[in-house]
Design a binder for these strands. Structure first.
Lengths: 341, 341
DNA sequence: CTTAAGTTTGCAATCGATTGTTGAATCACC
DNA sequence: GGTGATTCAACAATCGATTGCAAACTTAAG
């Protein structure tokens, strides 16, 4: 197996200096070399099957052409579309994403972050933000390029692309109000997450704006955005507020957990209790019952985050911290119905 | 913003030559340097917040510490677990995965492959294999490290980790036979894929081994492993064989498409027609009806593929081409029942 | 005190590209 | 033919690590 051809192999074959070969091969600097020469170089490269070495280039230019993407867990159905959105946009500009799953473990996140810094990624797209996040503070101090996606922070000096969670929960809650519910509970997400806190706030606000009180026992905070956390939360919620006719869950997985508990307690959904989710995860329409939920344009969230980061990377100098919010939409399905009687 | 500390910054601060610093920092060569000196170097590195530059190291060692992972589409729920399995194993050894989504497009695949070669990945894990696959032939010719996952090829000289698809379909088919079905159809996957062809073969074999004939109109080949392809295939199947009492689908998405068509035609599943899937995709238990399917250990498939590749990368010289097959399991749920009457 | 073996460290080349600077060649024009 | 402008290509430094080899030093044995 002959080792891969290098730039000077190409130069040699074309009878030029490697500097000339380099300029000929790079479209941006090709105009610096004679047309005929350039073509000779291109031909030589083709004949040798030359593949440029991104590592060598990266060392010289100190740009790796890679981006670190930090998510909690790829197996959470929420994230694949976001990741695809990011990758599609980045790939178009020749960038590659390096994926890191933190599993919500701070240790792990630190280690992965370090490994991405070692690899000299040109920037980060972060979907694991907590409302305040030491690692992000550190990244900001070091002047790294960071774009937040899906989850925001309390700091407002990061570029971010999020869904309008406030509007989303308002849509779900008003839908329930409109079909006649008055005793509505909320299964909130973790309150150290922006999404968890903003959704809970929006839920309460919406009720109040309809002159309804929000008794504390109608809100239960779940430990995580997971089905099992949803199960635990729902048990607690139903124990302390058995007369609810509807539940607004902070996301689809929690809603799924709620449905499990309803089934376990012999409560029919939506006949006796309605449930709404959030995210419109893939196949939410296939569930039993099909889940009424709030659709979030995950792919676009990712794509826009990618674009924002590319912007930072290609435009030199300091940049505005853009904060983009994308609109959600209520998807009405079978898990909501007017209250009994 | 001071630029990041380099190895010679560390060396300078510790009062040693950068070669010494390099050896002190690398656990594998630390024994070559005096204990006290090594500690001075470590301390200096810590104080400066030194982060090694993987790009420079990669250039020198011609190993990037990255692996290309080629999949059709991350949004297909089948692949996230595989990818996580791969990543978890690789990360433990300091490797990073570069993900590429081909969308089953040969052009795209070629471009992505090239970009991974440019980045000098140390090896490939490929989940997009077709039964014969020019790109893979080429990779083999160039002596690249390749491990196949989930889908095999006709060539048997690649390392591969697959599920025992033959057994899986046999389990599903025998389950239907056992509960009394005799007129069973098969919605096959694309026949240029190993999975598609082996599953179809296994279906027919299983019936024949029970002395049942397999009329050609009982088998329809779908264009893709997707819900829409499943819809189209099912329409065709039911048109040409209206008396079926059960359908073995080549995967869950096709099965989902089948359920759609049954609903559309007013056929109740499982009362009138039973359906089985393949993969046990996430939330298949939540569907309406809950899907009887064949569980494949996707995460382990990925993890084992990662291990196999690491083996190739760390063990020098030529290696055996191991082919690993993992056992599937039948998961009986609500989409199968004895035939009517 | 000499010699040999064993430790520890420094020197310098190297990986494969990019790019600022210099120098040669070409050309036009007076 | 001389001058200046312009085009093109070569030279050589550089990015930040790793590593074979040589040199210096320590230690032990004779």
């Amino acid at each position: 197996m002959p080792r891969a051809a290098t730039l000077s192999d190409v130069a040699q074959r074309a009878g030029v200096h490697q500097a000339t070969a380099s300029r000929a091969l790079n479209p941006a600097s090709r105009h610096l070399v004679n047309r005929a020469t350039a073509e000779r170089v291109l031909a030589a490269a083709r004949e040798l099957g030359y593949v440029p070495n991104a590592i060598a280039r990266g060392l010289r230019t100190s740009r790796s052409g890679t981006v670190g993407v930090i998510i909690p867990d790829l197996m959470n159905p929420l994230f694949p579309p976001i990741v695809r959105g990011i990758e599609d946009v980045l790939a178009r500009e020749g960038y590659t994403a390096l994926l890191a799953n933190t599993d919500n473990d701070e240790q792990r996140e630190r280690a992965l972050f370090e490994s991405l810094v070692t690899r000299r990624v040109d920037g980060f797209i972060v979907a694991t933000a907590r409302r305040n996040h030491p690692l992000l503070d550190e990244a900001a101090r070091h002047g790294l390029n960071v774009v937040l996606v899906y989850r925001g922070t309390d700091r407002t000096d990061f570029c971010a692309v999020t869904a309008d969670d406030r509007l989303g929960i308002a849509l779900a809650t008003e839908h329930l109000l409109q079909i006649g519910h008055r005793r509505i509970g909320h299964l909130a997400g973790p309150q150290d997450l922006y999404t968890g806190s903003i959704r809970a706030n929006s839920f309460a606000e919406t009720l109040r704006s309809h002159q309804l009180s929000v008794p504390p026992e109608h809100i239960v905070v779940c430990d995580a955005y997971s089905e099992t956390a949803g199960v635990a939360g729902t048990r607690r919620l139903l124990d302390q507020a058995p007369d609810l006719t509807a539940i607004v869950a902070a996301n689809d997985l929690i809603a799924l957990g709620a449905c499990d508990v309803l089934r376990e307690r012999g409560l029919r959904c939506p006949d006796q209790i309605s449930v709404t989710g959030f995210n419109d995860m893939p196949f939410a329409d296939k569930f039993d019952p099909p889940l009424t939920t709030v659709r979030v344009p995950h792919y676009d969230l990712g794509a826009e985050a990618g674009r924002l980061l590319l912007d930072q990377l290609t435009r030199p100098g300091p940049h505005l911290t853009k904060r983009l919010s994308l609109p959600p939409a209520l998807i009405t399905r079978g898990s909501t119905a007017p209250p009994p009687q």
